[in-house]
Design a protein around this nucleic acid. Structure first.
Length: 570
DNA sequence: GCCGTTTTCGGCCCGACTGTTTTCAGTCG
């Protein structure tokens, strides 16, 4: 689809325009880019119907540019901007605390047009001589330039969330802290996060801030005030702590949870009613009367909206749904009755099947599917037909000792380059559950799609696990025809796996697309040790970001219901 | 460049923190 290509060009244009006088044009281009990224329909089709201007944020001028791209594969405006503006300047914008104004001054006064130029200017201590700058500004820019090299990466939620939870746990011990919560993209369960946001309410903010900056994990303090403090913790991640009073906790939680796009729409809704929404409260601008503030829910309700789960707050239709009271009732970790993809020490897992079962029972699971790797995955000690048969017998035997809990004998089978599975049908027919997975790295579009499709057509395959984003990021030009896969999966009654590990997973957008087509899902950990069963929360978080409800997920079913969905469960 | 239950012109989310200057501009989230 050309939607993403055009969105990318609009973002490039926005970056370049940012360096010029007008600060509103870039905003318009970004808004349009976002709209394009979210379209579920091909932009070509919309253009043919002459409905480009119906896209939010697209008016006459942008519609014309979209048409130009569709006809010529090019947008001349971008080229002219690129000729006019040095690309090194855009790079300068990525340095923290350097914005468009600073870039302009650096260029006009010092001739700086690249990171390298900036480095030289800093070496000569030229920056502090500029009007509006001083030694402190120069030093900060110097440090940020250094910092950018080492710390610019986004962290996976699985790493960031435990760090945040630890800090919250320690701060909660302070008796001056009334309420405390994780906010930001972590609260929205975004797969990767740029920084950690923590929100607290207190009657003694200074003490809370003081304790915070003296926490053993804190390495450096970026900014410190009574309501907002930013630090770097030793994992190389920025943590922002905000402290407000109790009356504002709901408004602040709403505000700091974001996303930015979601908040902008909310504030627009408030403005339409002559109200003002800030991190302190929702307020009538004329009478100054406070309409809501202590509770997040009250703010949404005052704006005519149902309360929206943080995972949905991306301005991708959740506000419209909340207005119409049509929000999904999202799946919760407690809805999960069992894990359908775990590895034991029979292949590359660390724990025995018995230990895995014990942990599953302790989690109140009703079933657990052991799905070790198959023989093609020799490097992880994959099971061949003989060992799998033996494992199935072992599992059947173990089941005799459980009440109200069932171990399922499954397999994670490799799909071979010719589309066949790497274990014989005879032995697979003995299992309860078959997950088909692709562990290839370099394939053309047609063949990856074809492999997944042929896996769906295989009679014994119940679940498809995905080619990872990792593959996609390693090969930028590689793409998979997901709509086709979703159609076939739906048709063949094959479920899609939402995986909790950060390596193998669908994006929220794709999950939502598949859900709308009526495809079923399972949420699994692919745990390689018993302690990893707890990672299911990340899979659930991802599912929630994809608007998934319990009814879309097979492993929310009781064992007897599950049995009816997977034909060969014994 | 977009957009309209005050508007086809004049807005465009709002507030904290920093460094500089002495009342504010720039940046960020």
């Amino acid at each position: 689809m050309k939607n993403k290509e055009i969105a990318r060009i609009f973002l490039q244009i926005a970056d370049l325009l940012e360096l010029q006088e007008d600060s509103f044009k870039p905003r318009a281009y970004r808004r349009a880019a976002r709209s394009l990224e979210q379209l579920s329909e091909d932009i070509d089709d919309i253009a043919i119907r002459g409905e480009l201007e119906d896209i939010p944020g697209v008016g006459k001028a942008l519609a014309k540019k979209i048409k130009e791209y569709l006809e010529t594969g090019n947008i001349a405006y971008l080229n002219s901007l690129q000729n006019e503006i040095d690309s090194g300047l855009v790079e300068l914008l990525s340095i923290p605390d350097i914005g468009p104004k600073t870039v302009r001054v650096l260029k006009e006064e010092l001739g700086v047009t690249s990171l390298e130029d900036l480095r030289l200017a800093l070496n000569d201590n030229k920056v502090q001589e500029l009007r509006g700058f001083g030694p402190a500004s120069e030093e900060r820019i110097r440090q940020n330039l250094e910092l950018m090299v080492g710390y610019s990466k986004r962290l996976f939620i699985g790493i960031a969330l435990p760090i945040a939870e630890n800090l919250v746990k320690d701060l909660r011990k302070l008796k001056d802290v009334t309420q405390i919560a994780i906010a930001g993209s972590l609260r929205r369960w975004k797969e990767t996060i740029g920084d950690i946001d923590i929100l607290a309410s207190s009657t003694n903010p200074n003490l809370v801030m003081h304790t915070f900056i003296n926490h053993p994990a804190v390495e450096r303090v970026f900014a410190q005030g009574p309501t907002k403090t930013s630090v770097l913790v030793d994992e190389g991640i920025q943590v922002d702590l905000r402290v407000v009073n109790n009356e504002s906790f709901g408004a602040a939680l709403q505000y700091f949870t974001g996303s930015k796009a979601h908040n902008i729409v909310l504030r627009r809704l408030a403005r339409q009613r002559k109200w003002k929404l800030s991190e302190y409260h929702l307020q009538d601008m004329k009478t100054n009367k406070i309409i809501a503030g202590s509770s997040e829910k009250a703010i949404y309700e005052a704006l005519g909206l149902d309360w929206i789960s943080p995972e949905l707050r991306e301005d991708t239709g959740e506000i419209e749904a909340a207005l119409k009271h049509k929000l999904p009732s999202l799946i919760d970790e407690h809805d999960i009755r069992g894990d359908l993809h775990v590895h034991s020490n029979w292949s590359d897992g660390a724990d025995t099947i018995e230990d895995l079962a014990k942990t599953a029972i302790a989690r109140k699971y009703k079933y657990l599917a052991i799905c070790d790797h198959s023989k093609n995955a020799a490097i992880v000690n994959g099971l061949d037909e003989t060992r799998l048969k033996k494992q199935i017998l072992h599992i059947r035997k173990l089941n005799e000792q459980f009440n109200n809990f069932k171990l399922l004998a499954g397999a994670e089978v490799n799909v071979l380059p010719d589309g066949s599975l790497d274990l014989s049908d005879t032995v697979l027919a003995e299992t309860d559950l078959v997950i088909a997975a692709i562990h290839l790295t370099r394939k053309t579009r047609s063949s990856i799609t074809d492999l997944l499709v042929s896996a769906c057509y295989h009679d014994l395959v119940d679940i498809i696990a995905y080619p990872s984003k990792q593959i996609i990021s390693q090969h930028p030009r590689f793409s998979i025809d997901f709509p086709t896969i979703f159609e076939v999966a739906k048709q063949q009654g094959v479920s899609l796996e939402i995986n909790s590990s950060h390596q193998l997973k669908l994006t929220p957008e794709l999950i939502r697309q598949a859900k709308e087509l009526g495809v079923n899902f399972v949420v699994s950990t692919a745990a390689h040790r018993a302690s990893q069963l707890g990672l299911i929360r990340y899979g659930v978080g991802l599912a929630r970001r994809g608007w998934i409800e319990p009814k879309n997920v097979l492993n929310t079913l009781t064992f007897n219901q599950l049995r009816k969905c997977f034909q060969h469960i014994r």
